[in-house]
């Protein structure tokens, strides 16, 4: 049985208590995108300022639980200064980590998931979330919002659970 320590790793609590890149950016030149988690009413606002193909600045506003807030904080640190392609790759890797459990839920068996090619760094601490299916949406909220901000489609699989 997964315990609380699997979910609330120390690094997650650290990002929750001291969130990185918290705040707002001037719109324009930045864009502002809102995301909602209908389950718990969490709300994340992602401000993004691009410099050509590169994400120059990012700020996170809104409110939410420790999982959604720490995921947003880690995401902001991970994507800052990266190119669009790199962010997409990182997003895919993060989603792959999160969707392991969804696959097993559907199929009933462990499903081989394409190994993420991007280095997730601190974000790997969120791996434990997959053992708590209702919290996956908390962890993916900021990522879906960032994808929307960058003009990509939101991944509705994570939303539709």
């Amino acid at each position: 049985m997964p315990g609380l320590e699997d979910l609330y790793r120390e690094i997650i609590l650290d990002h929750y208590r001291s969130p990185r890149n918290r705040g707002e950016l001037e719109v324009p030149p930045a864009t502002r995108t809102e995301g909602f988690n209908p389950l718990c009413g969490d709300e994340v606002v992602v401000y993004v300022q691009m410099d050509g193909d590169q994400l120059d600045e990012i700020r996170i506003a809104g409110q939410g639980c420790s999982i959604s807030q720490s995921s947003a904080s880690m995401m902001s640190a991970a994507v800052k200064g990266r190119t669009r392609a790199e962010i997409e790759e990182l997003t895919r890797a993060f989603k792959a980590m999160m969707s392991i459990h969804e696959s097993t839920l559907e199929g009933g068996e462990e499903v081989e998931v394409e190994a993420p090619t991007a280095d997730l760094g601190d974000l790997a601490a969120l791996q434990g979330v997959v053992k708590f299916p209702v919290r996956i949406k908390c962890a993916t909220l900021s990522w879906n919002t960032l994808a929307e901000a960058l003009g990509g489609d939101r991944d509705d699989r994570a939303e539709a659970e």
Binding site: G3, L4, L7, Y8, L39, C40, G41, D42, Q63, G64, C65, S66, I67, Q69, F132, R135, C138
Partner: peptide, 25 residues
Amino acid sequence: IHPHDLTQVFDERGVCVRAGHHCAK
């Protein structure tokens, strides 16, 4: 403490409590 985090700890102890906006935003 965010209610969602609260009820996660509650759940460990078999305590069923709802967290969220309760369909009354």
